[in-house]
């Protein structure tokens, strides 16, 4: 008996939903851009988990292909995001988002 017949689909759904919620809440309450970005990665991976699980249970491969695209794009986002954070850190030596409030209105 493999893991797919032992674990019902609803368990995968619940796990991915939990991961997504943790990521979303973390994004909203943390103030360190790197941690916020890690929370976004968590949300993306929650999506990936749901995609591969439902691809397996429905025996449709589209979901697995989608996951490759999501991972590739996430890597590109990391490159750009960390570059932005490094550029800011060089200038201010401090990257709390609450400090980033020059613009108001």
């Amino acid at each position: 008996m493999d893991i797919y017949s032992a674990v019902p689909f609803s368990a995968w759904l619940a796990l991915s939903g939990l991961l997504f919620t943790i990521g979303a809440i973390g994004f909203l309450i943390r103030r360190d851009p790197i941690v916020m970005f890690m929370c976004i990665e968590l949300m993306l991976n929650a999506g990936n988990l749901l995609l591969v699980a439902s691809a397996r249970y429905r025996a449709v491969m589209d979901g697995q292909i989608y996951v490759f695209f999501v991972m590739t794009v996430a890597a590109a986002e990391v490159a750009v995001g960390l570059a932005i954070i490094v550029a800011i850190f060089r200038q201010r030596l401090d990257i709390d988002v609450d400090e980033m409030s020059e613009m108001r209105g």
């Binding site: 759904l13 991915s16 997504f20 990521g23 979303a24 994004f27 851009p33 916020m36 970005f37 976004i40 949300m43 993306l44 929650a46 999506g47 990936n48 749901l50 995609l51 699980a53 439902s54 691809a55 589209d62 979901g63 989608y66 999501v70 794009v73 986002e77 750009v80 995001g81 932005i84 954070i85 550029a87 800011i88 200038q91 201010r92 988002v97 980033m100 409030s101 020059e102 613009m103």
Partner: peptide, 30 residues
């Protein structure tokens, strides 16, 4: 400063929205 601030805000909130897109389409697929 303000250009950096713009980039960071756009990047963080834009990626947040992208994560919603991915999870939303994953739900649709499921």
């Amino acid at each position: 400063g303000i250009s950096q601030e713009a980039a960071l805000k756009y990047f963080l909130l834009g990626s947040f929205a992208s994560a919603f897109f991915v999870y939303g389409t994953a739900l649709v697929f499921a």
